[in-house]
C-alpha cells in the first residue's frame, strides 16, 4: 500500500467519528496497541526534540526500505507517532522524502498539531524524513 493509500485509510477511519473526544480516544488506543520501543533504542540520539513529552524514533534501512519504530511517554503523542510510523514505514527513502502528509488536517486535529504548537509533530515528520535520507546514503 502506498503512503497515499495509507493516509486515505487513516482519514476514512477517523471520519467515522463525529465527536472529537472519540477521535482522541482512538488515537490513544492506537498508541496502546503499538509495541513499545525497546529501551535500548530510547537514546539521546533517537530523541525527537521540540516536543513537550519525550519522543523517540528508531529507524532501520533494509532492502532499500525504511522501517520505523517510535514511542513517547505521553499517550496522545504516542498514538500520533504510531500513526506516522504506520503510514511511512516500509517505503523507500525517496517515497518518504517526497510524501505530503496532510492526514492530520483531514482527521480534524490540525488545529492542535500545527507547526507552531509545541507538540513537535512537525519535528517528528522532519526527523523521519532526515533519517530516511541519512540511512540510505
Amino acid at each position: 500500500m502506498s503512503i497515499e493509500e495509507m493516509q486515505q485509510n487513516i482519514i476514512e477511519e477517523f471520519t467515522l467519528f463525529d465527536d472529537w473526544s472519540d477521535r482522541y480516544q482512538r488515537i490513544i488506543e492506537i498508541g496502546e496497541e503499538a509495541a513499545p520501543l525497546d529501551e535500548k533504542y530510547k537514546t539521546e540520539e533517537n530523541r525527537v526534540h521540540g516536543c513537550q513529552s519525550r519522543v523517540w524514533l528508531h529507524t532501520e534501512y533494509k532492502d532499500g526500505k525504511i522501517f520505523y519504530q517510535a514511542d513517547s511517554d505521553a499517550a496522545i503523542t504516542r498514538g500520533l507517532v504510531t500513526i506516522l510510523v504506520k503510514v511511512l514505514s516500509g517505503h523507500t527513502p525517496q517515497e518518504i522524502a517526497e510524501a505530503k502528509l496532510d492526514f492530520i488536517d483531514k482527521i480534524g486535529l490540525g488545529k492542535h498539531l500545527s507547526p507552531t504548537r509545541s507538540n513537535g509533530f512537525a519535528n517528528m515528520i522532519k526527523k523521519m524524513k532526515q533519517e530516511a535520507i541519512r540511512l540510505s546514503q
Binding site: S21, Y24, A74, I76, H112, N119
Partner: peptide, 13 residues
C-alpha cells in the same frame, strides 16, 4: 498514570 501533556491537550479541547 497520565502524562501532563495529555492533560493539557485534552483540557485545551
Amino acid at each position: 498514570g497520565i502524562h501532563p501533556h495529555d492533560i493539557g491537550t485534552l483540557l485545551d479541547e
